[in-house]
């Protein structure tokens, strides 16, 4: 209940935000929230299950490309196209995950990176279908069921995105605290013990991989419709890296930390750095700072402050103070 209430409060504050910021910032916030949710979904794989992926941008981009191509080439309704894009992405994840999660650690990092590069290669080289480096422009947004709401309006699109993101966050939070979510933490801590308790560890890993991909796919659709365009940038390994680092910087397993870091890094990127090579350096620098100064990420800040007040603090999911197991 407490978690759901916090999500609701955050949603209301975010919904009121456009009253106080410029149209430019409304657009920026739309994208920031999308990347926040993407990072939060990835946290289920990285923070909860303990599996690293450098390829989840592939599922973000695949959904975007799927929808964009369906709309521009086959004139499909954007609502249906969104479903098609997400479906495509999830199917590919379902096919790839059982192979990938047999590996762990660096090997998994490498095969997810390789997979991402294959998808990226397909998008950039298959020029006649995907538009190559130019991507797919002219993607139309879905028509809202309430005719007075014009989705072309940046504020309306912000609310539209916010609606789906709040729904995603709610579902992610539910999932994370369910028995299945708890079992993912179990897999992270001890696969052997999980097997001895009768859990199909392989299937749990596949589940985490596919759920993270599905969240990425929804975010990819929201991003594509925001830009009315999809390009190879949405499949770039640097986006995967940015999401992975958002999880680390935010605090793996905390869910809200990666959300904040995912949004924050996007804003830092657009405001301070721009889309240059320097961004990768800044990202690396932020990563090193986090590892050295704040090993638990942003999410450990409240815990640290509390620990300063109370010397011994029991932590865990079922403990009202939250901690490693994670609150939202």
């Amino acid at each position: 209940m407490r978690r759901e209430l916090l999500i609701l409060i955050a949603a209301v504050i975010l919904a009121l935000l456009p009253r106080f910021i410029s149209t430019y910032w409304v657009g920026l916030m739309t994208q920031a929230l999308i990347f926040g949710a993407f990072a939060m979904g990835l946290d289920l794989l990285v923070g909860y299950t303990g599996l690293l992926s450098l390829g989840h941008a592939a599922f973000f981009g695949l959904a975007g490309y799927g929808a964009a191509l369906a709309i521009t080439r086959w004139s499909l309704d954007p609502w249906l196209a969104a479903g098609l894009g997400i479906g495509l992405s999830v199917l590919v994840a379902l096919a790839y995950a059982p192979l990938a999660v047999r590996l762990g650690g660096l090997a998994l990092l490498t095969v997810t990176l390789a997979f991402g590069q294959v998808v990226w290669g397909l998008a950039t080289r298959w020029t006649t279908f995907t538009g190559g480096e130019n991507g797919v422009p002219g993607v139309s947004r879905p028509v809202l069921p309430i005719s007075s709401l014009d989705i072309a309006d940046p504020i309306i699109y912000y609310w539209f995105s916010l609606f789906w993101i709040v729904l995603l966050v709610f579902l992610i939070s539910r999932f994370a605290h369910s028995p299945v979510g708890l079992s993912l933490l179990g897999v992270r801590d001890s696969e052997t013990r999980m097997l001895a308790l009768g859990y199909n560890v392989h299937r749990r890993k596949v589940t985490a991989f596919v759920v993270a991909a599905a969240v990425g796919a929804v975010c990819g659709i929201l991003s594509t419709y925001f830009n009315k365009f999809v390009g190879p940038g949405s499949l770039d390994w640097r986006l995967s890296a940015q999401m992975l680092l958002s999880v680390v910087i935010g605090g793996p397993g905390s869910l809200w930390g990666p959300f904040v870091a995912g949004s924050g890094l996007f804003i830092i990127r657009t405001q301070l750095v721009g889309e240059t090579q320097r961004w990768v350096m800044v990202l690396g620098f932020l990563y090193i700072i986090t590892v050295l100064v704040l090993p638990g990420g942003l999410a450990s800040i409240p815990v640290r402050i509390r620990n300063r007040r109370i010397s011994t603090l029991p932590s865990g999911t079922f403990d009202s103070t939250g901690g490693e197991g994670g609150d939202v």
Binding site: L182, D189, G316
Partner: peptide
């Protein structure tokens, strides 16, 4: 000893009870 070290004692038993 093979347990879930980051989880609470109750959560450890809970993972068994859920199955």
């Amino acid at each position: 000893t093979t347990l879930f070290k980051d989880l609470t004692v109750l959560e450890n038993a809970l993972l068994g009870a859920l199955v």
